[in-house]
Design a protein around this nucleic acid. Structure first.
Lengths: 381, 381
DNA sequence: AAAACTATCGGGAACTTTCCCGAAACTGGT
DNA sequence: ACCAGTTTCGGGAAAGTTCCCGATAGTTTT
């Protein structure tokens, strides 16, 4: 009843157990185990055949090597053959499969970008700048945001690395104190460039703006406008930006012989709620400040809103200066004095450095200029 | 002097041309062509060996199939062996190569998101919502922005498809009239979901908000506040959102017996410059409007700025209502009345539908609710 | 006309993983 | 000891490219 799959005889075939639910047989004659082949209809529903290089080769009766060479623009090929191949490729709408290429060369042509947040003007704009350069260079971009959470950042770095990105552009969270996950990236020799919120303790390029000079100018401007009791709502100490702007603030005070009052210096985590809380705190001090230098524009704007709600007049009773020239700062009433930084250019620059890093690794810190933009929130006339 | 690579004799060897810069030889004895092997140091500098499944197999003296099964949590394997493999994998920090998997299964676990711009609150927020759902489902996200350019959009779709994304989340540009590039996506059976700026002519799911009701309420609110000559600065006719909000505007006017003045209806391309130009145009009309319903918040804000610069008082001389409740609209002075839409939720919803689409394709339009948020810019008391 | 080249092409390994299916090594029961 | 049945493992194809290198046919040189 059962024919041996090999010798086609039926006499020596006997049952021999069950494998994966299917009856197995054994032919004593040819000493051969086998199971009955399934109906072919169970052929696994392929997703839809893609036209490949082999299809072209078969169609033309040549080898896939030749097709590959033609498509890659290699020299080692006859002009006629190349034309033939190119024409057919076009006709069949051949699209090379980047996955195969990536597997072979172990490079994906994808760059990962990791930012802490996405809600304000700053990071989306940096990303656009970076994307401009990267897509020109033939790279795709994979964007993650860590939502200011250290754990998410670690997870994202892992996910990006697992996706085998060819490089990483990163701005860390306010919580990032441990940088082991970035060390792992460097250990695997994946190019890594930090921007804005950088990691100076790591031996890899960093792109920042001249935070010190910007902060210094901002505070000096406040002094020149006659403000004397200038507070600073700063970012977390973990961030280099915070420390640099802080130093600019302190040095400007010192230059003009103003005392440093620790009561007026607050580090916070850059969340909206905390900004409001500390703004309220500052304004309800027995001796409240007559001006506040904020770590960035969103912070400055929260301060303005709090001041307004308390009936504190800007700039008469309170001067305010922010940092980064978010478009919103020109719109708000009164318009916000702020330190302009080339945001878009920062993305471009970071991308360029990343690309260069892939060719010839070099560790350097790049600094972009800042410029004070004076508006109504600080002109005490 | 030259030994034949085959027979090891030297007598019959003679030169036989040059291939790729290297001297080639021919052995008459064994009828064999050969070149001298290069020094091995030229071995191509591999990027750094990745630990693979084969490394584990070799280390343990078992086959790669077994390792694969163990790692994939297959049942067909001895508990002891599995533990051994898992332990070694952990020790070697084995990371499966998603590229090989992608090539084999032809799915990348990447979803492409394509938006027209990136500068305002809306799209980044939608993206965050989508990302939340998608990353939970194990997908990475590749983001492109077309910068409101049709050509860039086409190029981006092509790039994304070429990267073999498993699905696409799209909001089209203001210029998009031809949708052949999306038809190509559908033809390749790649799941595609539109959101916000949708393509109703394509048979694929669309996620929108109740634009009609939102617009209707907004305009009705203006009427109830006593405004009688209400203009509408609308988006391009190509976008469904524009048409729906327009219909809401018209119907609200009609319901309250107000005439429709075509002079007061302007379609524009959503750029800042044009917004300013048309705002100025409206306000310098012989019979200027006493209120403007703007297609979205950025437009409304441009109008406010223009009005301010012309000394037009808001809301006394000009009522303004926007659409989408951009956070900036609560901050600006006076605060902007606007139609709130669940932006974050729109991203989540679009992502969920895309995921469902991958399992069982179904064409449907999903509508999220809107809600009027009344603020100072329209309360004419 | 042999020798020395050149231009062009083909074969097959390699990249890493999954999956199919056959096979060996057990387990118990007779 | 023999057999049915089960558990566990290995071999090898497949996915789509690129690249190395050997091979062939035609062309020029001596």
């Amino acid at each position: 009843m059962i024919k041996c799959a090999k010798c086609r005889q039926i006499d020596f075939v006997q049952k021999s157990g069950i494998v994966r639910g299917k009856q197995r047989y054994f032919c004593k004659s040819c000493d051969y185990h086998f199971t009955l082949p399934e109906a072919v209809e169970n052929r696994k529903n392929k997703p839809r055949h893609q036209v490949t290089i082999v299809d072209i080769a078969n169609e033309l009766g040549i080898s896939k090597s030749t097709v590959s060479r033609a498509l890659r623009g290699h020299t080692d090929i006859h002009e006629g053959t190349r034309k033939m191949i190119l024409d057919l490729a076009q006709q069949l709408e051949y699209q090379p499969n980047p996955l195969a290429n990536a597997l072979l060369k172990s490079r994906t042509n994808i760059v990962g970008i990791l930012v802490p947040e996405f809600r304000h003007y700053f990071f989306p704009t940096v990303i656009m700048g970076a994307q401009e350069i990267l897509s020109k260079a033939g790279y795709n971009v994979m964007i993650c945001h860590s939502d200011e959470s250290y754990d998410t950042e670690v997870a994202n770095v892992k996910a990006l690395m697992n996706s085998r990105v060819d490089g990483l552009l990163v701005s860390v969270t306010t919580q990032t104190n441990n940088v082991d996950h970035f060390r792992a990236v460097l250990r695997k020799e994946v190019p890594l460039v930090f921007f804005n919120r950088v990691c100076p303790e790591l031996d890899t390029p960093q792109v920042i703006v001249d935070d010190y000079a910007g902060a210094f100018q901002a505070v000096e401007h406040l002094v020149q406008q006659g403000y004397r009791r200038i507070a600073h709502l700063a970012g977390p100490v973990s961030l280099l930006v915070s420390r640099l702007r802080m130093k600019g603030y302190l040095d400007a005070l010192q230059k003009h012989g103003l005392p440093v009052d620790n009561e007026l210096i607050i580090h916070y985590d850059l969340t909206e709620e905390k900004a409001r809380i500390y703004a309220n705190y500052l304004l309800s001090l027995p001796q409240p400040p007559d001006a506040i230098f904020a770590i960035n524009d969103p912070t400055a704007i929260e301060i303005m809103l709090v001041a307004k709600s308390r009936g504190v007049k800007i700039p008469q009773e309170l001067g305010i200066v922010g940092f980064s020239n978010d478009p919103i700062s020109a719109i708000i009433e009164p318009p916000l004095t702020t330190v302009e930084q080339p945001v878009w250019e920062m993305g471009r620059q970071a991308a360029r450095i990343l690309l260069e890093q892939m060719e010839n690794p070099r560790i350097e810190t790049y600094q972009l200029p800042t410029k004070l933009v004076v508006r109504g929130s600080s002109v005490n006339c």
